[in-house]
């Protein structure tokens, strides 16, 4: 059902992705704010974006988006446009946790490696590499990267972005801020998913939004 409708291939499918800040309140309550969030929505056909339109927004040397796309498979490449929500109701105090949670599923038992590269003006500034083992649940193999701590670079970036007085200034900074996530099968080095993220600030009062596109070469 989900093929062609969201981020995934026959081998791996993204179920959830969220970046958040969270504060533990009194009586063990948690106050969580989502900066960005992808969840399973109702399936709709994806529009396409020519991958060459965004090459320069991501690393271009060996192992960059162009290289990766040429190696393929092309069906594993996606672009996500996020409208991020920076209207945090959570006070930014010591003890606030900044994290990222992502969840994948697939039909095979694999060990996956997930690389997340934060890029500024198309150049990688920081990379996180995580390895995740499969857990068999309800006939599918699940891969959960739960509450992975956000790197200092991103936390500082969010702080600085929030200090800008106008949304258009934030969007101007975000024009040159991107994240590239590459998920591979650790044992075979097969590319399973490649997701390019670009950002704008949400103008909605009701939180973060997104569009997903297929990356193609037309």
């Amino acid at each position: 059902v989900w093929q062609g409708c969201s981020i995934g291939t026959a081998k791996l499918h993204l179920l959830e992705f969220s970046a958040f800040m969270e504060q533990q309140g009194e009586t063990n309550t948690y106050n969580r704010h989502l900066f960005v969030h992808i969840s399973q929505g109702s399936p709709t056909a994806l529009e396409s974006v020519d991958v060459r339109q965004i090459y320069d927004k991501f690393p271009e040397k060996k192992g960059g988006l162009k290289d990766l796309y040429e190696r393929g498979p092309p069906g594993a490449f996606f672009l996500v446009k996020f409208w991020a929500d920076l209207n945090t109701g959570v006070p930014d105090e010591p003890g606030v946790f900044y994290g990222v949670t992502s969840q994948y599923e697939g039909p095979e038992n694999m060990t996956i490696t997930c690389s997340s590269k934060v890029c500024s003006f198309g150049k990688q500034v920081v990379e996180k590499v995580e390895t995740e083992y499969a857990r068999f649940e309800n006939g599918r193999f699940m891969y959960r990267m739960h509450r992975s701590p956000m790197c200092e670079y991103l936390i500082n970036f969010i702080h600085k972005l929030k200090q800008l007085p106008e949304k258009y200034m934030m969007n101007s900074v975000l024009e040159n801020f991107t994240i590239l996530q590459v998920v591979t099968n650790r044992d075979t080095q097969e590319l399973l998913l490649c997701v390019a993220y670009v950002f704008e600030i949400s103008t909605s009062e009701r939180g973060t939004q997104y569009h997903i596109y297929r990356l193609v070469k037309e």
Binding site: R52, W83, R206, Q209
Partner: peptide
């Protein structure tokens, strides 16, 4: 082949790329 620092607004992107979805 590549746009090379052309502002995103001037690139060949779907109209939806600039339209924030309405909250459900």
């Amino acid at each position: 082949e590549r746009p090379d620092q052309v502002p995103m607004r001037k690139r060949q992107l779907p109209a939806s790329f600039w339209e924030e979805p309405r909250p459900v």
